[in-house]
Design a protein around this nucleic acid. Sequence first.
DNA 1: AGCAAATGTTGACGGTGTCAAGATATGTGC
DNA 2: GCACATATCTTGACACCGTCAACATTTGCT
Lengths: 204, 204
Amino acid sequence: MNQTKSKYHHGDLRQSLIEAASRMINEEGIEGLSLRKLADRVGVSRTAPYHHFADKNALLCAIAAEGFRRWHNEAQRILSQTDLPPHTRYRQFAQGYIHYATRYPELYDLMFGRTIWKQASATEDLKAVAYPSFQHQVDITRQWQAEGLLPNSLDSLRLAQVTWGTLHGLARLVIDGIYADSSHIDEMVDTLVDLVCPPVKSLR
Amino acid sequence: MNQTKSKYHHGDLRQSLIEAASRMINEEGIEGLSLRKLADRVGVSRTAPYHHFADKNALLCAIAAEGFRRWHNEAQRILSQTDLPPHTRYRQFAQGYIHYATRYPELYDLMFGRTIWKQASATEDLKAVAYPSFQHQVDITRQWQAEGLLPNSLDSLRLAQVTWGTLHGLARLVIDGIYADSSHIDEMVDTLVDLVCPPVKSLR
DNA sequence: AGCAAATGTTGACGGTGTCAAGATATGTGC
DNA sequence: GCACATATCTTGACACCGTCAACATTTGCT
């Protein structure tokens, strides 16, 4: 029933749309994505997508949600390297974050840009993935504090906002092509780490 | 010749467009601005603006340029308070930055968002204002280093990218309504300052 | 087999940015 | 004061866009 793909009902439009849209977004940017071009490329009529997504925003939210899941996996991979000293792990986390953002700049813009979050247009599905991701950042920060990497005296939530905000800001400077260049990522991260947790009193 | 505004040639459409557009952007957001609505509100036909701006992008660049000039004035005002200790001035600068961003969120998005910078669509006029503004951040950073506020051991450019990136990131988190709330700005800035230049060895 | 639901299609509406061609006012040189 | 170039503004048109309504087809269930 799903073997030879005749031209009956296409099979799984929903996933095809997400994939094709992701590809188009990565190639031409979010602004360059139109539902009509997308439908055309997938080979269906303009309004077919509306049977799988309420509107364009819902499609974007679905793509963003997948971006969150992918980043979560990547972050877990980095943070689970318990054999590395905290200092190194922190640096790798920071580098991983910005590299992820710069490898999929349009996706990152979708995940954290105002297109979605500004006027509360996030889907429930998206929130269900994104909010825990935000909370996760606080948990990680608390752990860094416990490891002595960040000062224990500061409030964890505020500290999480600042540390994440810093990564977010650097990522945006790079992917928005403003004042920072992707070839300087590692140097910038090094500078950041040196600035935020410099002493490493226990070692040096 | 310019006293009673009859309906001849409108007088100074260009400035009227910029002002009306700024107002509309602040009210409904960048996405909500259309040249047709704008022209309608100002009382001219749809294509009249094209005699003053090459296209919509040029209009947005002109508005952004004014945003840069205004922020530059604000920054100068803060930094010229030489009677305050560096530490306090730094805090005020950071607070001023984020407050400026949150007071005109749509303008800030325009100034630093990818709408303009992503695919190098910035006007020459804009660049002429924006680039010196970026450079200014480096100068300020160098001064902070000279004052002992930031470590002298780090490269000024990288340090400027990091410090500005941090402010930029926090500002974006707040104005994009994601994970941070405008009522926490001061606390976040305090946390940031404590984190970045904590010891104040000379005093404590 | 038959019926309901899922899925896909064409047609249409109002909105957008912008180009081309024409109209009108302004300013300048004589 | 007149003529002409220039700046400015208008209407018409085109190609897009997102999305709704109505209709057609396929699928799955009983």
